[in-house]
Amino acid sequence: MKYLINQVRSIIAFSKREYIIWTSYKVNIVTWILDVFINSTLFFMLSLLMGKNTNIAPYGNNYVSFVVLGLSAYYISYTNLGDPYDRVARIYWNGTMDLYLLSPLSLITPIIGIMYRSVLDDYPRVLLAFLFGWLFFGARFTFYQPVAIVLVVILLGISTFGIGMISASSFFLLNLKVGTEPIKFIFQDIIIALAAGYFYPISILPYSLQILSLTLPHTYALDALRRLMVPGANVTVPVLPLQKVLNVPPISLDLIMLTVMSFLFIYLGFFMYIKGVEKARRNGTLTRWQ
C-alpha cells in the first residue's frame, strides 16, 4: 500500500513539474489553441464534403458526429501510442534515466508521470473537437449509456497505452535511440491509418483490411462509441466481420474484445519494456553516460 501511495505521489509530483514546464513557454498555449482549431476545422470541412455521399448506416445519420468520434479516438490513440517511446527517449537523453532507475519508483511510473504533458496538451483536443462539431458543424450526440461510453474510452486508453509501451520497449530491446520507431510506425502510420475507420465505416474497406482492422482496439471502440453516441444508430445490426460470425450483441462483443486487448497489450507492453531494460542493464545501454 505504501509502495502504491509513493507511486501516486510521484505521479502527482511529475504532473506538477510537467505543468510548470508546459506553462513556462507561454507561446505554447496560443499555438496549441490555433493548432486544435485549424486541425478540427480541416477535418470537419473534409467530412462535410464527403458526408453527402457516404453511407454510414447502421451508425445513425449524422456524419459529423461520426467523424467527431473518429477524431477523438485518433487523439487518444495518438497520445497513448506515441507518447511512451517519446517519454522514454526524453528521460534517456535528458540524463535523468539514472536518477529514476535509482529511485524506488516502478519502471513505468516516470513514463506515466511525464505523460501528464499529454493530458494537458492532447486530451483537451477531444473536448474541443466535440465543442467545435456541436457549435459549428451540426454534430449531435446521445448519452443514454454513459457507463458503457466511459468504459469504452478507458479500455481504448489502456489498450493503446499497452501498444505504446510495446513501442517504448524498442528503445532498449532493439536499441533504437534515434530515427523511426518501427512499432509506432507500423501500427500508427500504416495499420491504424488505413484500417481504424476514423473517417469512414470499415465496411467500405476491402475484406483483407477489414480482417486486419480486427487486430486494432480502435475498431471495437469506434464501433461501440458510434452505436452508443450517434443519434439514430442501430445497436443490434452486426458490422464487423467478427460480429457477423459470433452470435453476441455487437456492443457486448466490442467490450469483450477491448477488455481482452487491454489485458493483452498492457501485459505485453510492460513485459517487453521490462525485458528491454534488463537487456540494457546487461549491455550497458541503459543510461546515456556509461
Partner: peptide, 11 residues
C-alpha cells in the same frame, strides 16, 4: 555522479 547535473530540470 559528476554527470548527474545533466539531469537537473532547467525550468
Amino acid at each position: 555522479s559528476a554527470s548527474f547535473w545533466m539531469g537537473l530540470e532547467w525550468q
